[in-house]
Amino acid sequence: MSNTLSLQTTCEDAKYFRNFTGILMALSLHPEWLVKIPEGRAWAILHHVVYSGDVNQLEQLLALQKSNTAFRLLAPTSKNETVLDIAKLRPDQKEMLQRIERLVKLDEMLAYAKDCEWDKCYSIIEENPSYGNEKPPYRRFYLIHHIAADNNIDQFQTFKKIQNFKFDFTLRADRKKINVIAREEGSNVFADYIEQEYPSYFDDDEIDDKLYEPSDTALQQTNKINVLMEQHNIFQDSNFISGIAENKKPRKVVDADVEKTQPKPKQASNQNQSGVGYSVGFIQNLLKCSLTGFTVTDPVVAADGFTYERSAIENWFKKSNCSPMTNEKLAHKNLNPNLIVQQILNSIVRE
């Protein structure tokens, strides 16, 4: 198990497009590894995944960054290449390039919004109005939450004038409505305004709220897991089971197609070896449904890369074709079992 969860080994697997189950396990426990470059290497795991062209794998790894506030999509390689540069190396993988370009633009817009550079945000949304109600999977706030946090009614009204753009008032951050976020940020003037102007969105909506409520089974599971975990102060890598190797098209074949030789300069070590401990809170957060916030009983991964309780996301799909975490339209509604989370749940129960 120690080999499976070393940064060097995980990066090696990513480089050769193999053992994604092992990579997913490692990044579930060490999300910060996604952009760390191991000693003697040129690229981090993120760069290799982008180079592979596998958008589904990228989405799952980006979803794990929701708890990593230090994550930066454009983290450079040792030669200052970004994921956008790497995606452009693969003209045969247009879907990956399109995904990276969209993420970069959303990141840019929300970075401007965080800094209250509203004119720059305005230009981006005017160019593509859909950006105004979307966010990358690793960001907490949508545009409207940043406007709310700034207590800026004037800017809210300015954005409303953009042709073909309309704010989505159902958007939530941490399962909280816009008015709640505004009050938490000390923006009571904005909260009062939006509640008065759009009361239908902020009155008690039992149907909408139920989408975020856990089932009785999930509540029981949460209580059970919490009791079991109270017996531990810390969990080790060795508590968990590694995945099975999954080989894809060989890296050397892709390299030959791209005609690119990867350099491997020496640099300071960022390696974080396994055997590290994880707090109870960290593991509990890992086991939560992204929609309800409670421990999963039947964990599944949707097209957005996030893990949900199966029944919760199936209920969501009855009203929406978009991700509840990014508000982007999902490529499909297929749900795959999250074997990593299930393994961790099983290991806790066995303790």
Rank of each mutant, 00 (worst) to 15 (best):
K176A: 14
S187A: 13
D192M: 00
N188G: 06
A182T: 09
N188S: 13
E184C: 05
Y198E: 14
F190A: 08
G186R: 07
S187R: 04
Y193H: 12
V189Y: 03
D174Q: 12
T170L: 06
V180R: 07
N188I: 12
Q196Y: 10
Q196I: 10
Y198I: 01
E195N: 00
F169P: 09
Y198W: 15
G186V: 08
V180P: 02
D174A: 13
V180M: 11
L171V: 03
R175L: 01
V180Q: 15
K177R: 14
F190I: 09
R172K: 12
I181N: 01
S187W: 08
F169M: 10
L171F: 06
Y198T: 04
D174S: 14
V189L: 02
F169V: 04
A182E: 13
I181D: 06
F190T: 02
L171W: 02
E184T: 13
Q196P: 07
D174T: 04
K176Q: 04
R175V: 03
R175H: 05
A191N: 00
S187T: 05
A182D: 06
F190K: 10
T170S: 10
A182P: 08
N179W: 15
R183G: 09
V180L: 03
R175I: 01
G186C: 00
I178A: 02
N188L: 04
G186H: 01
K176N: 12
T170E: 10
Q196V: 02
I181P: 03
A191E: 04
R172Q: 04
E185V: 12
R183L: 08
E184A: 09
G186A: 08
I178V: 09
A173Y: 02
K177Q: 11
Q196N: 12
F169A: 14
R175F: 01
K176Y: 06
Y193T: 07
I178M: 02
E197K: 14
A182Y: 14
A173S: 15
I181G: 05
K176H: 05
V180A: 11
I181L: 00
K177Y: 05
V180F: 10
G186F: 07
A182H: 11
E184F: 13
R172T: 07
A173W: 08
E185S: 13
Y193R: 05
G186P: 05
R183M: 15
N179F: 15
T170K: 15
E197D: 11
Y198R: 11
D174E: 10
D192R: 03
D192F: 02
E195K: 00
K176T: 09
I194H: 09
S187M: 03
R183E: 15
V189N: 14
T170Y: 11
R183T: 15
T170A: 14
E197R: 08
V180Y: 13
E185C: 06
N188R: 03
K177T: 13
N179M: 08
E185M: 11
K176S: 12
A191T: 09
F190M: 04
S187G: 11
E197W: 03
S187I: 05
Y198Q: 04
R175Y: 03
N179E: 13
